[in-house]
């Protein structure tokens, strides 16, 4: 994939993702509530979007030509807020510690009317892909070239509404739309394949194929893979693209990784310190490379 990015650029992206993970841990510790596993797992993909892929202007979040990022699984918003903060959106450093608190713009689930740069209000699962279709229709009608990136989770694929949108996007050949699925195999009550299996019969990726989508399967922590998939998504013609990103929930903190108990709880102070120490060690190793 070196045709798209150099080793050096990838290393920089890895460092940025690490910084974002550290910010997420601090935000959650200060909030004393919120979701930990999903945001840590999606830090690399958000970094790839906000620091490489997106056509956007952090100082002008309502720029009409911007790419749209529709976050369907709103509960992972700490990663979005942290990515936006580090990318230069107008969020103050002190504001990060107001997450989930009264009077804050950083709502527990994203609020469109409060924070510029957030495209939709979300939190209730299964709604984002339909909204993303609406954004994609609007772009086509207005002959706008921007891309619609919809972030969704695996758990919300139990919702019928998700599949209604899957059919719709294929029907209308919404090739300006790409959904990136956080395939981390966890949800609240357990592992997805125990709660509501998505790979039963055929895999989630094959299900999307059967519905007429262009489907890519990638490692969600491999920047070459991620950026390569973004390129393919943008060049796909006549079909929407689905990127099934295999991620590790809680990525970067050993006691959080792949443990669904970390879906919806924040670290306490001791746990946060340990998590930050682990992330700092990863950061050191990256810098030595």
């Amino acid at each position: 994939m070196s045709t798209i990015v150099t080793e050096k650029e990838i290393q920089q992206l890895q460092l940025t993702a690490n910084t974002i993970r550290q910010t997420i841990i601090r935000m959650l510790m200060d909030a004393g509530a919120g979701h930990t596993a999903g945001p840590l797992g999606m830090a690399d993909i958000f970094t790839a979007l906000y620091f490489h892929e997106l056509k956007h202007d952090p100082k002008n979040p309502s720029w009409s030509e911007r790419d749209r990022v529709i976050l369907s699984n709103g509960h992972i918003c700490p990663v979005r807020y942290a990515a936006m903060y580090h990318a230069g959106y107008q969020i103050q450093k002190e504001e990060l510690s107001t997450f989930r608190k009264i009077d804050s713009r950083l709502e527990g689930h994203p609020a469109f009317h409060r924070l510029p740069g957030v495209e939709t209000s979300s939190g209730p699962l299964g709604e984002g892909l339909s909204e993303a279709c609406g954004f994609a229709f609007a772009a086509k009608m207005d002959h706008k070239p921007h891309h619609i990136w919809c972030l969704a989770s695996d758990g919300e694929h139990a919702e019928g509404m998700t599949w209604e949108a899957v059919m719709l996007a294929a029907k209308y050949k919404l090739d300006n739309l790409c959904v990136i699925i956080d395939r981390n195999y966890i949800q609240i009550d357990g592992f997805t394949e125990d709660v509501m299996p998505l790979d039963l019969g055929v895999s989630l990726a094959d299900k999307y194929k059967a519905f007429g989508w262009n489907v890519l399967e990638i490692g969600g922590h491999d920047f070459a893979d991620i950026l390569g998939a973004f390129e393919k998504a943008k060049s796909a013609k006549g079909k929407p693209t689905c990127i099934v990103a295999r991620t590790t929930p809680g990525k970067g903190v050993d006691f959080m990784e792949n443990n669904y108990k970390w879906h919806g709880v924040p670290p306490n102070k001791t746990q946060a310190e340990e998590a930050l120490a682990q992330l700092a060690r990863i950061e050191d190793a990256l810098r030595r490379e």
Partner: peptide, 8 residues
């Protein structure tokens, strides 16, 4: 419901 916000 608290910190989850209005959606919840």
């Amino acid at each position: 419901t608290g910190t989850d916000g209005p959606t919840h």
